[in-house]
Every structure is written in C-alpha cells, then in structure tokens.
Simulated scan of single mutants.
Amino acid sequence: MKTVFIALGGNLGEVREHFIAARSDIDRLQNTSVSASSLLYRTPPVGPAGQPDYLNAVIRIQTDLDPLALLDALQQIENRYGRERLEHWGARTLDLDIIAIASDIITSERLVIPHPHMFDRQFVLQPLCDLAPQWQHPQLGESATHRLKQIIETGEAPLPEGEAW
C-alpha cells in the first residue's frame, strides 16, 4: 500500500456535496481507503476570468492500485459528478488530481507525479500541510511547509481559514 495525496477542486454546482460523495467513492475503490481529509478552503479561480470561487481540499489515501488505474478511477468519479473538459483551467463541478504518490516520480504522457504545479499553488499546499506538513518533494527536496511559507513571504496573501467538511 502506498500513501497518495489527491487534490479536490470545484466551483460549479454543489461542490461540497460532490467532495463528500467523491471521497466516499474513492474510499470504496478496490484496495483503497481514505485515511485523512484536509480542511476545505475557498479560493479565487486560476484561469479564465468570470468564474466563481473554488473550493479546494486534499485527501490522503492508502492504495495498492497502479497509478494509471487510480487515475482512470478518479476520472470516472469526476465524470459521475458532471465534469466536462471544455476549457483549460475552466470552471468545473469536480476536479480530482493525484498530487503525490509516496516519494515516487512518474513522467508519462497521461500522468506526471508529483503534480507539476503543486508547489506553485497555495490552494494545494495549504490543505496538503493540514495533512502532511513535512512531506518532502522528491525532486526539490523541499517540504510542503517550507514552500508554503516561501509563497506567502513573496507577498501572496494567506488563504482564509479553512473549515471542516
């Protein structure tokens, strides 16, 4: 079993309910269990203008699924909750991104792990720090906490306080 971190995001429809249902769906995957959930954060959108704010969170799971099998399962869950891929970084009902699998490094056409943008996005780092503040990026050798602190020190406002979901 490997520890995997999955980022959840969404800004259309009943996002909180989609997160709760998706977390249950993930927990029911073969040889997979959700072991922790971060707080829930409301954040401004990244991407096309005019979108509503996002809700963001991270969950930690234990699984022995192959990374691509996990990716396929997560995309099926996204589709179940109305995910449409119409516009890059566009509004969405549910986004499930594998951000890290233990200390693995994967580079394939379909999957890059660690997620290539995770250390640039406070809306990923803050919820990750809720669960694993000392998680080390396997390529950068930097902890999630250290990187989050750097982002805030460069002038980006800290996220508003998170809430339980």
Rank of each mutant, 00 (worst) to 15 (best):
F19P: 09
F19L: 09
A21T: 07
A22K: 01
R23N: 00
R23I: 15
S24V: 02
I26Q: 00
D27L: 01
D27R: 02
D27F: 00
R28S: 14
R28L: 12
L29T: 07
L29F: 10
S33N: 08
S33W: 08
V34K: 02
V34Q: 03
S35D: 09
A36W: 07
S37I: 12
L39Q: 15
L39F: 11
L40A: 04
Y41H: 10
Y41W: 11
Y41I: 08
Y41A: 12
R42Q: 14
R42V: 11
T43W: 11
T43F: 10
T43G: 09
P44H: 05
P45T: 02
P45N: 00
V46D: 11
V46K: 10
G47E: 04
P48G: 04
G50E: 07
P52T: 07
P52I: 11
Y54M: 13
A57N: 01
V58H: 02
V58M: 02
I59T: 02
I59D: 00
R60W: 00
R60M: 10
R60V: 04
R60N: 01
I61E: 00
Q62P: 00
Q62K: 06
L65D: 03
L65I: 12
L65A: 04
P67C: 11
L68S: 05
L68N: 07
L68K: 06
A69R: 09
L70F: 12
A73P: 10
A73M: 05
Q75L: 14
Q75G: 07
Q76A: 13
R80F: 05
G82F: 07
R83S: 14
R83C: 13
L86V: 12
E87A: 10
H88T: 01
H88R: 15
H88A: 08
W89S: 08
G90R: 07
A91Q: 03
R92T: 05
L94Q: 04
L96G: 09
D97A: 08
I98G: 01
I99V: 14
A100D: 13
A100H: 10
I101A: 12
I101P: 05
A102C: 07
A102P: 03
D104R: 00
D104G: 01
I105T: 14
I105P: 04
I106F: 06
I106Y: 03
T107K: 13
T107Q: 14
S108T: 15
R110Q: 14
R110G: 03
R110S: 14
V112W: 00
V112I: 14
I113G: 05
H115E: 05
M118K: 06
D120A: 04
V124Q: 07
V124Y: 09
L125I: 03
L125R: 08
Q126S: 04
L128N: 00
L128M: 04
D130I: 01
L131P: 08
P133I: 08
Q134S: 15
W135K: 06
Q136P: 01
H137G: 06
H137Q: 08
H137C: 10
P138A: 11
Q139H: 06
Q139C: 10
Q139P: 02
L140C: 05
E142H: 04
E142M: 12
E142W: 08
S143T: 15
